[in-house]
């Protein structure tokens, strides 16, 4: 991390309450993410880690503080939200592919409709992305004809078609059968090697150790601890992170 360069994502005292029940889900979040940084966010269920990354591309609103993504304040301004969403790609736990469109149609949808790219050019670029996640031969199948691991790789390729500067991963391997986790992690590692800024909510500690520059541990809506993977896994400072690690690594 170069200290002089401005962070690409900055959370400044961000607070969020759920509109439905008033639950205080994010408390005074102060975080900076540098360009090209790979960060793994972990923590127990309900700790606010998914909500945190969903704020980055405005899938969730926040009530207090300020969140800046690549120079744009994420807030009420819809144009700003559009701008941010063009630069931020997201991969979901449940893939969220469009089941009524083929794999290729899933990929070219946004380039042709949002970026107004000519269809042939969009197809070429989409096929290149599919090659990269090694799924080009399934381009004309429908998502539900693929395995979970293949679907998630398509989802990653779809997010990459917009050439995002930042990728958000919300538990990308949690809905997968064990033997398919590796193929998705391999794609993510390849992406990390190319210098993509990545925020990953995941419990894949092997991935965190191999790729992450920093691990952030959250509990009850707060950032409890953050450190390099080696330090975090070997010498957790906080009681709650020690407890969490003993639970997920204890078997």
């Amino acid at each position: 991390m170069s200290a002089q360069e401005a962070p690409i994502i900055r959370f400044d005292k961000v607070n969020k309450w759920y509109a439905s029940n008033g639950y205080h889900v994010l408390r005074d979040i102060n975080l900076d993410f540098a360009k090209g940084e790979k960060v793994v966010i972990c923590g127990p269920s309900g700790s606010g880690k998914s909500t945190l990354i969903r704020c980055v591309n405005a899938l969730e609103e926040y009530q207090e503080g300020q969140l800046t993504v690549d120079g744009t304040v994420v807030g009420d301004d819809l144009k700003g939200i559009d701008r941010v969403r063009r630069e931020v790609g997201m991969v979901f736990q449940q893939f969220n592919l469009f089941p009524h469109l083929t794999v290729l149609e899933n990929l070219i949808l946004s380039p042709t409709w949002v970026a107004r790219m000519p269809r042939n050019e969009a197809i070429d670029k989409a096929m290149a992305q599919l090659e990269r996640v090694r799924i080009a031969e399934h381009a004309h199948k429908y998502p539900l004809q693929l395995s979970g691991g293949q679907q998630q790789r398509v989802a990653i390729a779809r997010a990459l078609c917009l050439k995002p500067k930042i990728m958000l991963f919300d538990e990308p391997t949690s809905a997968l059968d064990p033997e398919m986790i590796k193929e998705v992690l391999d794609v993510m590692i390849g992406l990390a090697d190319q210098g993509m800024t990545m925020l990953c909510v995941t419990h894949e500690m092997g991935f965190a150790k191999a790729v992450a520059d920093r691990v952030i541990f959250m509990d009850q809506g707060q950032v409890v601890e953050q450190n390099t993977p080696e330090e975090f896994f070997n010498h957790p400072q906080n009681e709650r992170s020690q407890d969490f690690l003993s639970k997920i690594l204890g078997h």
Partner: peptide
């Protein structure tokens, strides 16, 4: 329709009407 469909469309930058029409 699962909420994830409109969320995915939103992250891809589709407008409200594009999302309704295409997804």
């Amino acid at each position: 329709l699962p909420k994830g469909q409109t969320e995915a469309a939103a992250t891809l930058g589709l407008t409200y009407w594009q999302t309704q029409r295409k997804i």
